[in-house]
Design a protein around this nucleic acid. Structure first.
Length: 1056
RNA sequence: GCUCGGAUGGUGGAAUUGGUAGACACGUUGGACUUAAAAUCCAAUGACCAUUGCGGUCGUGCGGGUUCAAGUCCCGCUCCGAGUACCA
């Protein structure tokens, strides 16, 4: 009885099933999912059953296309856990359903195979990420294949494949060669812009560009040097180089995501992180803000998702104001949505990183300002946004001039203002904004009130609807709306401001200082970027010896020795040849994860012609865009916004004919794991004198690792709690046992027998700490397989256990399963992850119960979009259901169905099911359709139905959910073609006609009894019958009802 | 902090969109079959009270409200989860 765990337990079941099969060998008809599933998976692959057709593949009239796509998986080293396939199963069901409905379905799959985890692994192990990625993909594919998806694998793509990223680079070049024309609201060729510059300069150009563009004439343009012209063009291009704030970690030599920073230091290694500016590629997504926003309206996405995007884009209508600075030629620009409160401004706050801060700071304030900037550079943006409790800031000593009242306004800096947000400066109106209000209160800055009859002694007043402006000169007495337009008018007149629409959406940083991503097709001539010609793509990722940044802080590609571009030979050459005349250095950054995933949905549309096109015109024309997209809501503002941006761009430049990539989108919720915990008892030792542990004492005090770990079960933990004080005096039996055990351990280790040494003693309290246990050592009754646990990791090998019954575990006398021998763990729902040891692998489920059971169970768990915990024990429900379904088609284990006409009852059951399941599938309510199937099979079993008339359509209905069993039954019923080609059954109302209704009769809204009545009865007749019923009379106890409500076909309610 | 979700029996969840709360499963308990176990089948199962039977009270995170009728609508909270711009 060693090595005895839950998996072993169930494999005994499997053996039993196999025996059963042997027993019935002459009729071999038990539901043998293993044979059935591998048979059909092989047949689908051999016959390419799910290969989507291109339009030209049809001989006659082409079928209507339908495109179902899952969000691009990243092939992580951990493999799939049961949470991953949830969305794939749902989309597979929908894809299969659509095939039954007569569509030519495109349902492809591939890999977003560039990414940080592979690179991190490469840094640790030295293995090339391409290799580990390949291994991971193979494993992924094996796992996916076992679940029986109807993917068209012939169209697979991988972002790290040069044949694929060639086109990612190509799109980058198109972006570089484009600018955004605000008049026509679309991207255009940069050549058009150049010809305008040549003819009339830039004064009339209305294009998206950097803020610091200055005006020039045609003459000036022509006189600029090549370099100057390129610098100017870079300010207009849709992808451009710019100084951007990043989280820089000097020790790691790399930039970190906010995600990778914990409490201001790097998650890995705990090194200091500072914010610094860095020259990087950016994407001018902000140019598309308005279209990204308005485009949402026609999309069939959930409101919450659209709302997230709206919020992310963050459109606000207001005014941009200019504040002159006293004794300085500079001005500060601010954006406000409330220009009506302009007379309420009592200070300005700049972000600490604002470029003017050091210029305007007075000598007296210089050192405090510098200190403050240093401190805030250490805080992450997220931290600064989230922290409202600590109000910090310093005065710069400078004053601005109020544009209207001309009063001096102090200029502060504060880290609640973010540099990358708006202009990085806030005109603070403390009476109308809570953060400004708190800041003013904290630093004793005046809070002028500009609202009529509003008390602002406690809080700011942000209301815009009922408010009247006061103390504001010419704005007095106006409502907010009128005051806004009047204020803007006045400010425009004196050139101190103008109406402006602001978006929160920032341009997206596109450079990564990493190895495992797409190389930019870019080299640098005189420090300015040049594109490699399209015909020389792809520019392949070079080999390097180590995947770390270089010693001088350059990205990993800085290690490549062959990473220079020969512009004459048009090839990559050795760095030694760089002469800056014909051979130039190549870009060292690579593209981010979202580069390859922003356009992949169009790549799947193409089959033959992938070499010369990202996708051919014909393919794009036929498939258009994704009809149904499924994935996690964590992509709401990243991937889903970037791919919309690229789609719109490619449409503008004539490469696509749709301007949205995903018509309908469903978010799947996360499947959570049930972690298991045991409880470690911890005690410690102290030297003779409290608080004065000498070094010598320290070395004498026994370390925890010298003892075998002592574990208690959940039962004992709930009795004792996290801490046990004065445990020697505890009356709890379990504590006494622990105490005895510790005593005996000490004796064995001779802790206190150290003659001549400092006296040490054990502390009086115990701490009980939960420790994650791998869930595979826990059975469905939450009992721990102690031997398995001990063998799991070396630190547990000597562990001791106190069982639920308070006795010490002994391998010989108290094995799992014997009465009284249980050691119960506690369970907690957490995210499913390797580190929490709560991962459940779909392979194991397929092995034990089969893919059809897995598919059904994942759907049965609950609504697709909600997070829900996984519990393997529940699987037996759907497994039993499949066995019952199988039995419907068999008599005494022999396949047998009747050709006779089905009963009225059975037809009713069938058509009820058709209606409900179809409705559910259209609404993506897969959990309820599984229930419906269960009800249907329960009813048909009850009816002893085995008519072909019922069982054939039933198999088709169930095929999208449990395709293997459905195919097998379909074949047994005599069909040669795959069930996936069968037509979906048609619902017929006539079988469901009811003429009576069981009315619930309620009194004051509480149901008391039911009454079967004909549906033909009128309201009055129903009331009459109900009132005559003796149960009604009993409820009324002789009183007259105040009111009787009859809703025909629904309810009766009597008000007493 | 901000934005978006969520909360219903021991557990996962259902409820035709304001009309019988707890469908369908899991689990638990009891029973049948068996030498026994597994498998299978049958029955009970929100809590409490009552019980020979009829039955009754409470109940959808908390506090209010609207209504003949509220899990569902309105107002105010609490707690949990996700995202928050270089994880994918």
């Amino acid at each position: 009885m060693t090595d005895y765990n839950i998996l072993k337990l169930t494999s005994i079941n499997i053996i039993n099933i196999t025996f059963a099969k042997i027993e019935f060998q002459d009729n071999d008809m038990a539901y043998n999912f293993k044979d059935i599933e591998s048979k059909w998976q092989k047949r689908w692959a051999d016959n390419q059953t799910f290969k989507a057709k291109q339009k030209t593949d049809f001989e006659g009239e082409p079928k209507p296309p339908f495109y179902v796509l899952d969000m691009f998986p990243y092939p992580s080293g951990a493999g799939l856990h049961v949470g991953h396939p949830l969305g794939y199963i749902a989309s597979d069901i929908y894809a299969r359903y659509k095939r039954h409905k007569g569509f030519n379905v495109l349902h492809p799959q591939g890999y977003d195979s560039f990414g940080l985890p592979a690179e991190q692994y490469a840094i640790q192990t030295g293995q090339h990420p391409a290799k580990t990625t390949e291994v991971n993909i193979k494993r992924y594919r094996e796992q996916l294949d076992k679940i029986g998806f109807s993917f068209d694998w012939s169209r697979e793509v991988r972002t790290s494949d040069p044949n694929y990223y060639k086109w990612t680079q190509w799109i980058f070049i198109q972006l570089f060669n484009s600018y955004y024309c605000l008049d026509s609201q679309q991207a255009r060729s940069i050549d058009e812009l150049i010809s305008v510059f040549t003819e009339e300069g830039n004064s009339k150009i209305n294009a998206a560009c950097d803020d610091d563009v200055t005006e020039f004439s045609a003459e000036e343009w022509l006189n600029y040097s090549e370099n100057q012209q390129q610098e100017i063009l870079l300010k207009y291009r849709l992808t451009y180089l710019a100084e951007t704030e990043v989280n820089w970690c000097p020790q790691l030599g790399t930039v970190l995501a906010n995600d990778e920073i914990v409490n201001g230091v790097s998650e890995r290694g705990g090194y200091l992180v500072v914010r610094k500016k860095m020259k990087q590629w950016s994407m001018r997504i902000s140019a598309y803000a308005e279209r990204l926003l308005s485009g949402l309206e026609k999309l069939d996405w959930t409101d919450s998702l659209k709302e997230s995007q709206r919020n992310w884009i963050g459109k606000s209508v207001g005014a941009q104001l200019k504040f002159e600075i006293q004794n300085s030629k500079h001005i500060i620009e601010t954006f406000t949505t409330r220009p009506d409160t302009i007379f309420g401004v009592s200070f300005l706050t700049l972000a600490p990183e604002h470029e003017l801060v050091m210029e305007i700071t007075t000598p007296e304030q210089k050192s405090v300002v510098e200190d403050y900037i240093k401190t805030s550079a250490k805080r992450s943006e997220r931290e600064r946004m989230a922290d409202v409790k600590n109000i910090t800031g310093v005065f710069t000593g400078a004053f601005a001039k109020h544009p209207l009242s001309k009063e001096p306004i102090p200029i502060w800096i504060g880290d609640y203002v973010l540099a990358g947000y708006g202009t990085g400066a806030v005109m603070a109106v403390p009476c109308g904004d809570q953060r400004d209000y708190d800041f003013a209160k904290h630093f004793n800055i005046p809070i002028p009130n500009v609202f009529e009859n509003i008390d602002i002694s406690e809080n700011a007043h942000a209301d815009k609807t009922q408010t009247i402006i006061a103390n504001s000169d010419f704005l007095n007495g106006l409502n907010v709306k009128d005051a806004i337009s009047k204020a803007i008018e006045a400010l425009e007149e004196i050139d101190a401001g103008k109406a402006k629409i602001n978006y929160r959406l920032r341009d997206a940083v596109f450079s990564r200082q990493r190895y495992w991503g797409e190389p930019f097709p870019v080299y640098y001539k005189n420090g300015l970027p040049k594109m490699i010609e399209e015909k020389h793509l792809p520019l392949k990722l070079p080999e390097i010896n180590e995947y770390l940044p270089t010693e001088d802080g350059a990205p990993p590609l800085g290690r490549a020795t062959n990473w220079a571009w020969d512009s004459e030979k048009n090839e990559v050459v050795s760095n030694d040849l760089i002469d800056d005349k014909t051979v130039f250095p190549l870009e060292l950054n690579t593209m981010p994860g979202w580069a390859g995933s922003s356009w992949y949905m169009f790549r799947y549309m193409e089959t033959e012609n992938r070499k010369d096109n990202f996708a051919s015109k014909e393919a794009l024309e036929y498939w258009q865009n994704v009809d149904l997209y499924l994935g996690g809501s964590e992509h709401a503002t990243g991937h889903l916004l970037y791919s919309r941006f690229w789609t719109k761009f490619l449409k503008d430049r004539g490469y696509l004919n749709v301007d949205e990539p995903f018509k309908k989108l469903i978010n799947q919720g996360m499947i959570l794991g049930e972690s298991a915990f045991v409880y470690r008892v911890e005690w410690h030792y102290i030297g003779e004198n409290w608080g004065e542990v000498s070094e010598e004492d320290e070395s004498e005090i026994p370390r925890k690792s010298e003892f075998p770990n002592l574990y208690v079960s959940r039962a004992l933990f709930s009795e004792m709690g996290r801490y046990v004080k004065n445990y020697k005096e505890s009356s709890l039996k379990s504590v006494q046992i622990i105490s005895e055990k510790i005593d005996s351990l000490e004796k064995e280790l001779k802790i206190f027998e150290r003659p001549g040494k400092t006296k040490i003693s054990r502390s009086l309290s115990l701490a009980i700490t939960p420790v994650h246990v791998n869930v595979s050592f826990v059975n469905t009754s939450n009992e721990l397989d102690i031997e398995g646990f001990k063998n799991w990791r070396p630190e547990f090998s000597e562990a001791e256990f106190i069982l639920d019954n308070g006795k010490l575990y002994d391998a010989d006398s108290s094995p799992l399963g014997k009465p009284d021998g249980a050691f119960t763990v506690s369970r907690e729902v957490e995210k499913m992850s390797k580190s929490k040891y709560n991962v459940v692998n779909p392979d194991d489920i397929c092995e034990e119960y089969g893919a059809d059971s897995l598919r059904l169970y994942e759907m049965f768990l609950g609504p697709i979009d909600q997070a829900k915990p996984w519990n393997t024990a529940g699987l037996s429900g759907v497994f039993n259901f499949l066995k019952k379904l199988w039995k419907l088609y068999h008599q005494d284990e022999v396949f047998s169905i009747s050709e006779e006409k089905a009963s009225k009852e059975s037809l009713k059951t069938l058509h009820k099911t058709i209606r409900k399941v179809t409705e559910d599938i259209e609404n993506f309510s897969f959990n309820t359709s599984v229930s419906t199937f269960m009800i249907c099979v329960n009813e048909l079993t009850q009816q002893k139905c085995n008519n072909r008339e019922i069982l054939e359509p039933l198999a088709i209905l169930i095929a999208p959910y449990a395709p293997h069993i459905a195919e097998e039954l379909w074949e047994k019923m005599g069909h040669k073609n795959s069930i996936s080609t069968a037509e979906y059954p048609v619902f017929e109302e006539k079988f469901l006609k009811e003429d009576t209704k069981t009315y619930p009769v309620s009194f004051n809204g509480k149901m008391r009894f039911t009454l079967d009545l004909s549906l033909d009865l009128s309201k009055e007749e129903v009331e009459k019958i109900v009132m005559a019923d003796e149960r009604t009379q009993k409820q009324l106890e002789g009183q007259k009802p105040k009111k009787v409500i009859v809703v025909p076909g629904k309810i009766v309610n009597i008000v007493k």
